[in-house]
Design a protein around this nucleic acid. Structure first.
Lengths: 192, 192
DNA sequence: ATATAATGCAAGTAATTACTTGCATTAGGA
DNA sequence: TCCTAATGCAAGTAATTACTTGCATTATAT
């Protein structure tokens, strides 16, 4: 990927975060990148093509392919906290804005699979983790799909709500949230 | 509200659900409502005005003003299940699409307070409920804001993920989710 | 140094879109 | 029945926007 194309992609993604796909014009991209508008169309087939090229890059996919559970300790509390912290660090409010900005009907069909990769990866990782923990005899038998969905939904939900409404909706801080909710899940899972 | 204006609002909101605010044109609204385009501008100051008028109507705010905890039984399991069911029934995928469609930067500043009313109402209700339960001696002392945030986030997260990715992300069904996650929270809260 | 490729510049095009206007038609109430 | 308000119709406007083209200029590699 040449420097010019990369710059175009980066600026485009940044603008989509801020204004959404439809409101991001090719002139905006040209101005923001200090690259002439016609050059943009020499490098890409069209506006949509820029976005799709961007979505294929790890950089714009929150590096999810990198192992999510890097340091599994096989300790439920530590691991769940690590999992949530991991998600909350990667999926910043910026990133949530991007995924919302990408929901324009003109492109959603194409971007959806990419956007879904992130929740998919986290969910699957959680399910596998629980199964392993079960095999190790460290937790009982549950509907692991459902358990993972609950924990992931609460992580995702918190991120999304914070990104959308900030302090106005709830003053609960990230670390406070991680500690308290993991403690709740922990007791729920390890109950007798 | 005269019939014509109401029809315009209803069609507009329906279209925003489907295509988002920016992609919904005034011609679309005219065609969809069988009302002439210029009549739309006689009734409303502009496109934005239609949406804002719609947001002020209970109909388009999921009737949140109606008491959320209608039949509190002061039984943690029953009440939490009722709470989640209540949310999942009111905040349909349709409704999630609407709130996403309303995130266009041209109107988000104005629509945000209305959109936020729903999570706000549910969150506050939960906090109050937990405090009452605590006073009744039925649950211990927690950081109730945080507890409510966890439970609401998981409810919201599930709804949003389902609305966005459907069966493709997870095959966990609504009722299954309610039962399992409430059971998890229950054990977490009532632990010893 | 020179050939080639990349980029800038300026102008333009065709389509779309929110919004307007003048006039004709319809509908409802007194 | 008649007056008035609501609505339709047709045409138009000004702005925006994705995308194009021809030509000049700059950078790069050999």
């Amino acid at each position: 990927m040449d420097k010019t194309s990369q710059k175009i992609i980066d600026v485009t993604m940044k603008l989509i975060k801020e204004k959404g796909y439809v409101a991001t014009t090719t002139i905006d991209i040209a101005n923001g990148s200090h690259i002439n508008e016609c050059t943009i169309f020499r490098k890409f087939k069209g506006k949509k093509d820029i976005v799709l090229s961007g979505m294929k890059q790890e950089k714009w996919c929150a590096n999810v392919s990198a192992s999510i559970f890097q340091d599994v300790k096989w300790d439920l509390q530590l691991d769940l906290e690590m999992f949530m912290r991991n998600y909350l660090e990667r999926i910043t409010p910026d990133f949530v804005s991007l995924s919302v900005g990408l929901r324009a009907p003109q492109i959603y069909e194409d971007t959806m699979p990419y956007i879904m990769k992130i929740p998919e990866a986290f969910l699957q990782t959680l399910v596998l983790y629980f199964k392993s923990m079960n095999e190790k005899g460290k937790i009982g038998t549950f509907d692991f799909e459902c358990l993972a969905m609950t924990i992931f939904s609460s992580t995702f939900g918190f991120t999304f709500l914070k990104a959308s409404f900030g302090e106005q909706l709830s003053r609960v801080k990230q670390e406070e949230y991680i500690t308290n909710s993991v403690s709740l899940f922990l007791k729920g899972i390890q109950h007798e």
